[in-house]
Amino acid sequence: MRFARLAFALVSAIALPLALTPRAGTAQGSAAATQTAPAAEKPAQPDFITPHISDGSKIDVPSFSLRENLTREIELPKWAPVHIGPLTVDLSPTKHVVMLLIAAVLCALTLMTAAVSQARSAATGKPPRGFANAIEATVLYIRNEVIIPNVGRHGEAFVPFCLTLFFFILFMNLLGLIPYGATATSNISVTATLAIVSFFVVEIAGMRALGKGYINTIVYWPHDMSFAMKVFISPIMTPVELIGKITKPVALSIRLFANMIAGHVVVLALISLIFTFGSWLVVPVPVIAATGIMVLELFVAFLQAFVFTVLVSVFIGQIRESAH
């Protein structure tokens, strides 16, 4: 019941600024159309889905002026690109960088507050209560039921990494559900980076666990076959093994990114129905539907963070066990 109310509040918070912006959107869209594509014949449709889900150099902050549609856009500073060898990296902060930072700060604050209050209650010899207890229960659940069983023996070393992944992704996912927020995890660059980091962690875990045997996870060289058979099959299977290695992080990054973007697109598309129909009468249907999707999104935010963590721990466990 409380979730539904929360979701309704979220939806109305998103819908309200949107409801007041069709004109601005149209103006923007047509302006963009005249600027970039003078050849375009058909009138440009206002597109407020893509700007909402993609990265940009502006962030939205709350405004209390109805003239500004309750939203003020703040232009982020633009820095000169940095040249690292042949690469040119534009390190200017973007909307998703800001969200990333906010998520990280919130995540750190939440967990450290919990740790501090837990330490305080530990000093009195009592188990923590309330919020600290909830965080502790989550941490323990992920650690004891997800990471350690999947990673296998001596899995403690990987617990902080996997837990950081879970909470960081969770906070980024949840930020997207808050008005004026954006989902950094709906950007493939973010999920790909996390997946690449996980990939390196998995491979290094494999190298440390298997030693010289790690090469067997790349070059297919089964010890229970004749030499001729090995020579025959190795060139075929080695690329397959390699593709298998690369697929995991790619699937990880796309799964998270696509899941996060999908919910937002659906919510925005539903809200857009109001403007497509251009009638107040149609308002309740998309609002109710979007509320439902929002509730689902809340679940998906947790689920995808959980899935990412589970899969990373499974991959670590797999590569460490592959020698046996």
Binding site: L111, A114, F161, S189
Partner: peptide
């Protein structure tokens, strides 16, 4: 976007170090 990837990496590494030292370790 290479810039965003760079920032993600930096933020994640800092968060990882900070959390493992000040949150997950103590908890």
């Amino acid at each position: 976007q290479s810039g965003l990837m760079f920032w993600t990496l930096v933020v994640f590494v800092i968060l990882f170090v900070g959390l493992s030292k000040f949150a997950f370790g103590p908890i």
